[in-house]
Protein backbone atom coordinates (compact mmCIF):
# COMPACT_ATOMS: atom_id res chain seq x y z
CA UNK A 1 0.00 0.00 0.00
CA UNK A 2 0.95 3.61 -0.43
CA UNK A 3 -0.03 6.64 1.61
CA UNK A 4 1.79 9.88 0.93
CA UNK A 5 0.74 13.28 2.21
CA UNK A 6 2.16 16.27 0.36
CA UNK A 7 1.83 19.66 2.12
CA UNK A 8 1.05 21.66 -1.04
CA UNK A 9 -0.83 20.56 -4.16
CA UNK A 10 0.97 23.22 -6.17
CA UNK A 11 4.12 21.06 -6.28
CA UNK A 12 2.33 18.11 -7.85
CA UNK A 13 0.36 20.39 -10.19
CA UNK A 14 3.56 21.99 -11.50
CA UNK A 15 5.30 18.65 -11.97
CA UNK A 16 2.43 17.20 -13.97
CA UNK A 17 2.10 20.36 -16.08
CA UNK A 18 5.79 20.18 -16.93
CA UNK A 19 5.62 16.57 -18.15
CA UNK A 20 2.17 16.05 -19.67
CA UNK A 21 3.03 17.46 -23.10
CA UNK A 22 6.11 15.22 -23.41
CA UNK A 23 4.77 11.92 -22.12
CA UNK A 24 1.12 10.81 -22.29
CA UNK A 25 1.30 7.98 -19.78
CA UNK A 26 3.90 6.32 -17.55
CA UNK A 27 4.46 4.47 -14.30
CA UNK A 28 4.99 6.26 -11.01
CA UNK A 29 7.42 4.01 -9.16
CA UNK A 30 6.92 4.05 -5.43
CA UNK A 31 9.26 2.57 -2.86
CA UNK A 32 10.38 3.20 0.71
CA UNK A 33 12.64 5.97 -0.54
CA UNK A 34 10.00 7.97 -2.43
CA UNK A 35 8.14 8.37 -5.71
CA UNK A 36 10.03 8.47 -9.00
CA UNK A 37 9.29 8.44 -12.69
CA UNK A 38 11.21 8.07 -15.94
CA UNK A 39 9.82 8.09 -19.47
CA UNK A 40 10.83 9.01 -23.00
CA UNK A 41 8.74 10.90 -25.49
CA UNK A 42 7.34 8.94 -28.45
CA UNK A 43 10.18 9.89 -30.78
CA UNK A 44 12.91 8.80 -28.30
CA UNK A 45 14.57 12.21 -28.41
CA UNK A 46 13.85 13.41 -24.88
CA UNK A 47 13.59 11.72 -21.52
CA UNK A 48 11.80 13.18 -18.52
CA UNK A 49 12.28 12.00 -14.96
CA UNK A 50 11.54 13.12 -11.46
CA UNK A 51 12.18 12.09 -7.90
CA UNK A 52 10.21 13.12 -4.83
CA UNK A 53 11.97 11.84 -1.73
CA UNK A 54 9.97 10.19 1.04
CA UNK A 55 11.05 12.87 3.53
CA UNK A 56 9.24 15.50 1.44
CA UNK A 57 5.96 13.87 2.49
CA UNK A 58 4.53 13.77 5.99
CA UNK A 59 3.68 11.04 6.58
CA UNK A 60 4.97 8.70 3.87
CA UNK A 61 4.24 4.98 3.91
CA UNK A 62 5.07 2.51 1.19
CA UNK A 63 5.76 -1.04 2.30
CA UNK A 64 6.69 -2.58 -1.06
CA UNK A 65 7.73 -1.48 -4.53
CA UNK A 66 4.78 -0.38 -6.65
CA UNK A 67 4.46 0.71 -10.28
CA UNK A 68 1.34 2.80 -10.72
CA UNK A 69 0.43 3.44 -14.37
CA UNK A 70 -0.87 6.98 -14.78
CA UNK A 71 -2.38 8.82 -17.74
CA UNK A 72 -1.10 12.37 -17.38
CA UNK A 73 -4.07 14.05 -19.07
CA UNK A 74 -6.35 12.51 -16.42
CA UNK A 75 -4.06 13.41 -13.53
CA UNK A 76 -3.71 16.97 -14.82
CA UNK A 77 -7.51 17.42 -15.02
CA UNK A 78 -8.02 16.08 -11.51
CA UNK A 79 -5.23 18.21 -10.04
CA UNK A 80 -6.96 21.28 -11.47
CA UNK A 81 -9.68 20.53 -8.88
CA UNK A 82 -7.15 21.06 -6.07
CA UNK A 83 -6.32 24.46 -4.63
CA UNK A 84 -2.63 25.37 -4.70
CA UNK A 85 -2.45 25.37 -0.91
CA UNK A 86 -4.47 22.19 -0.44
CA UNK A 87 -2.79 19.25 1.22
CA UNK A 88 -2.78 16.24 -1.13
CA UNK A 89 -3.00 12.71 0.17
CA UNK A 90 -2.12 10.04 -2.39
CA UNK A 91 -3.45 6.57 -1.51
CA UNK A 92 -3.18 3.20 -3.13
CA UNK A 93 -4.50 -0.05 -1.63
CA UNK A 94 -2.75 -3.26 -2.73
CA UNK A 95 -4.25 -5.32 -5.55
CA UNK A 96 -6.56 -2.59 -6.79
CA UNK A 97 -6.46 -0.56 -10.00
CA UNK A 98 -7.45 2.71 -8.37
CA UNK A 99 -5.34 5.60 -7.12
CA UNK A 100 -7.10 7.93 -4.67
CA UNK A 101 -6.28 11.60 -4.37
CA UNK A 102 -7.67 13.54 -1.43
CA UNK A 103 -7.42 17.35 -1.39
CA UNK A 104 -7.78 19.03 1.99
CA UNK A 105 -8.33 22.80 1.96
CA UNK A 106 -6.14 24.77 4.41
CA UNK A 107 -9.14 25.62 6.64
CA UNK A 108 -10.07 21.93 6.63
CA UNK A 109 -13.70 22.76 5.72
CA UNK A 110 -13.45 21.25 2.26
CA UNK A 111 -12.23 17.75 1.57
CA UNK A 112 -12.47 16.37 -1.95
CA UNK A 113 -11.67 12.86 -3.02
CA UNK A 114 -11.00 11.67 -6.56
CA UNK A 115 -10.21 8.18 -7.80
CA UNK A 116 -8.14 7.58 -10.93
CA UNK A 117 -8.16 4.31 -12.83
CA UNK A 118 -4.63 3.01 -13.12
CA UNK A 119 -3.19 1.64 -16.35
CA UNK A 120 -1.08 -1.44 -16.89
CA UNK A 121 2.05 -0.02 -18.51
CA UNK A 122 5.17 -2.03 -19.22
CA UNK A 123 7.99 0.42 -18.76
CA UNK A 124 11.45 0.08 -20.16
CA UNK A 125 13.98 1.78 -17.96
CA UNK A 126 17.01 3.20 -19.69
CA UNK A 127 20.25 3.22 -17.81
CA UNK A 128 21.73 6.69 -17.91
CA UNK A 129 25.53 6.65 -17.67
CA UNK A 130 26.80 8.38 -14.54
CA UNK A 131 29.51 10.66 -15.82
CA UNK A 132 30.91 13.97 -14.66
CA UNK A 133 29.79 16.55 -17.25
CA UNK A 134 32.45 18.57 -19.06
CA UNK A 135 30.49 21.68 -18.21
CA UNK A 136 27.92 22.55 -15.61
CA UNK A 137 25.97 25.81 -15.91
CA UNK A 138 23.64 27.11 -13.24
CA UNK A 139 21.45 30.04 -14.23
CA UNK A 140 18.10 31.69 -13.55
CA UNK A 141 15.31 29.45 -14.81
CA UNK A 142 13.27 32.52 -15.82
CA UNK A 143 16.22 33.77 -17.90
CA UNK A 144 16.63 30.36 -19.53
CA UNK A 145 12.88 30.29 -20.38
CA UNK A 146 13.08 33.74 -21.91
CA UNK A 147 16.08 32.81 -24.09
CA UNK A 148 14.35 29.67 -25.42
CA UNK A 149 11.14 31.62 -26.09
CA UNK A 150 13.01 34.44 -27.86
CA UNK A 151 15.22 32.23 -30.03
CA UNK A 152 12.43 29.99 -31.35
CA UNK A 153 11.17 33.07 -33.19
CA UNK A 154 14.42 32.90 -35.20
CA UNK A 155 15.14 29.21 -35.72
CA UNK A 156 14.22 25.68 -34.75
CA UNK A 157 17.47 24.86 -32.95
CA UNK A 158 19.93 26.60 -30.65
CA UNK A 159 23.68 26.20 -30.38
CA UNK A 160 24.74 26.48 -26.75
CA UNK A 161 28.42 27.41 -26.41
CA UNK A 162 29.73 27.34 -22.87
CA UNK A 163 33.11 28.83 -22.04
CA UNK A 164 34.68 30.07 -18.82
CA UNK A 165 33.37 33.60 -19.42
CA UNK A 166 29.76 32.61 -19.95
CA UNK A 167 27.18 30.87 -22.08
CA UNK A 168 26.17 31.90 -25.58
CA UNK A 169 22.87 30.81 -27.12
CA UNK A 170 22.72 31.22 -30.92
CA UNK A 171 20.04 30.44 -33.44
CA UNK A 172 19.89 30.74 -37.21
CA UNK A 173 16.81 30.58 -39.41
CA UNK A 174 15.76 31.32 -42.99
CA UNK A 175 15.22 35.01 -42.23
CA UNK A 176 18.14 35.82 -40.00
CA UNK A 177 19.99 34.91 -36.86
CA UNK A 178 20.29 35.90 -33.23
CA UNK A 179 22.39 35.25 -30.17
CA UNK A 180 22.24 35.93 -26.46
CA UNK A 181 25.32 35.88 -24.24
CA UNK A 182 24.89 35.33 -20.52
CA UNK A 183 28.01 36.24 -18.60
CA UNK A 184 29.15 34.49 -15.49
CA UNK A 185 27.90 36.68 -12.63
CA UNK A 186 27.43 36.85 -8.90
CA UNK A 187 25.33 39.96 -8.54
CA UNK A 188 23.63 41.39 -5.51
CA UNK A 189 20.49 43.46 -6.03
CA UNK A 190 19.56 46.77 -4.38
CA UNK A 191 18.13 45.14 -1.27
CA UNK A 192 21.38 43.32 -0.63
CA UNK A 193 19.62 40.08 -1.57
CA UNK A 194 21.52 37.71 -3.82
CA UNK A 195 19.99 37.94 -7.28
CA UNK A 196 19.84 34.87 -9.51
CA UNK A 197 23.37 34.35 -10.72
CA UNK A 198 25.01 32.44 -13.50
CA UNK A 199 27.87 30.11 -12.71
CA UNK A 200 29.92 28.01 -15.12
CA UNK A 201 32.10 25.12 -13.97
CA UNK A 202 33.99 23.33 -16.68
CA UNK A 203 36.82 21.04 -17.63
CA UNK A 204 36.26 21.64 -21.39
CA UNK A 205 34.45 24.27 -23.44
CA UNK A 206 31.25 22.64 -24.72
CA UNK A 207 29.16 23.28 -27.80
CA UNK A 208 25.83 21.50 -28.34
CA UNK A 209 23.07 22.04 -30.89
CA UNK A 210 19.62 21.32 -29.50
CA UNK A 211 15.98 21.46 -30.57
CA UNK A 212 14.22 24.58 -29.29
CA UNK A 213 10.84 22.88 -29.45
CA UNK A 214 11.96 20.45 -26.76
CA UNK A 215 13.79 23.05 -24.68
CA UNK A 216 10.67 25.22 -24.66
CA UNK A 217 8.72 22.20 -23.43
CA UNK A 218 11.23 21.67 -20.61
CA UNK A 219 10.90 25.28 -19.45
CA UNK A 220 7.38 24.44 -18.25
CA UNK A 221 9.24 23.22 -15.12
CA UNK A 222 10.70 26.70 -14.51
CA UNK A 223 7.95 27.69 -12.01
CA UNK A 224 9.26 24.91 -9.74
CA UNK A 225 12.67 26.43 -9.23
CA UNK A 226 14.49 29.74 -9.37
CA UNK A 227 17.47 28.02 -11.00
CA UNK A 228 18.09 25.54 -13.75
CA UNK A 229 21.26 23.46 -13.94
CA UNK A 230 22.50 22.39 -17.37
CA UNK A 231 24.95 19.51 -17.49
CA UNK A 232 26.70 19.41 -20.84
CA UNK A 233 29.30 17.19 -22.45
CA UNK A 234 30.35 17.48 -26.10
CA UNK A 235 28.51 15.01 -28.38
CA UNK A 236 26.33 13.82 -25.49
CA UNK A 237 22.76 14.52 -24.39
CA UNK A 238 22.04 17.68 -22.41
CA UNK A 239 20.72 17.17 -18.89
CA UNK A 240 18.54 19.92 -17.41
CA UNK A 241 17.65 19.84 -13.74
CA UNK A 242 15.07 21.88 -11.86
CA UNK A 243 15.04 21.30 -8.11
CA UNK A 244 11.64 20.71 -6.50
CA UNK A 245 12.18 22.78 -3.32
CA UNK A 246 14.43 20.59 -1.17
CA UNK A 247 12.45 17.39 -1.65
CA UNK A 248 13.51 16.26 -5.09
CA UNK A 249 14.06 17.26 -8.70
CA UNK A 250 12.77 17.04 -12.22
CA UNK A 251 15.30 16.20 -14.94
CA UNK A 252 15.17 16.27 -18.69
CA UNK A 253 17.62 14.70 -21.11
CA UNK A 254 17.77 15.80 -24.74
CA UNK A 255 19.84 14.21 -27.49
CA UNK A 256 21.86 16.73 -29.52
CA UNK A 257 21.60 17.42 -33.24
CA UNK A 258 24.56 16.76 -35.50
CA UNK A 259 25.58 18.18 -38.85
CA UNK A 260 25.21 15.72 -41.74
Amino acid sequence: MLEARLPAASILKKIVESIKDLVSQANFDCSESGISFQAMDESNIALSSFLLRADGFDPYRCDRKLSLGIRFATLSKILKCAGNDDVVVIRYADDTDILSLVFEAPDNNRISEFDIKLLDISSEYLSIPEQEPECKVKMSSAEFSRICRDLITIGSSVVIDATKSGVKFSSTGDDGSGSILIKQSASVDGDGKAAPQTTVEMSEPVSLELSLKYLNNFTKAAPLSEYVVMNMTNDSPLMLQFDVSDIGYIRYFLAPQIKD
Binding site: I45, L126, P129, S211, S236, L254, A255, K259
Partner: peptide, 14 residues
Protein backbone atom coordinates in the same frame (compact mmCIF):
# COMPACT_ATOMS: atom_id res chain seq x y z
CA UNK B 1 21.44 19.85 -42.82
CA UNK B 2 21.14 18.69 -39.22
CA UNK B 3 20.11 15.34 -37.87
CA UNK B 4 18.31 14.90 -34.60
CA UNK B 5 19.92 12.00 -32.75
CA UNK B 6 17.94 9.53 -30.67
CA UNK B 7 18.59 9.10 -26.95
CA UNK B 8 18.72 5.36 -27.59
CA UNK B 9 22.16 5.79 -29.15
CA UNK B 10 23.44 7.12 -25.79
CA UNK B 11 21.37 5.40 -23.12
CA UNK B 12 20.97 1.65 -23.14
CA UNK B 13 18.13 -0.55 -22.06
CA UNK B 14 19.36 -2.68 -19.19
Amino acid sequence: QKTQQSLLSFFKSP
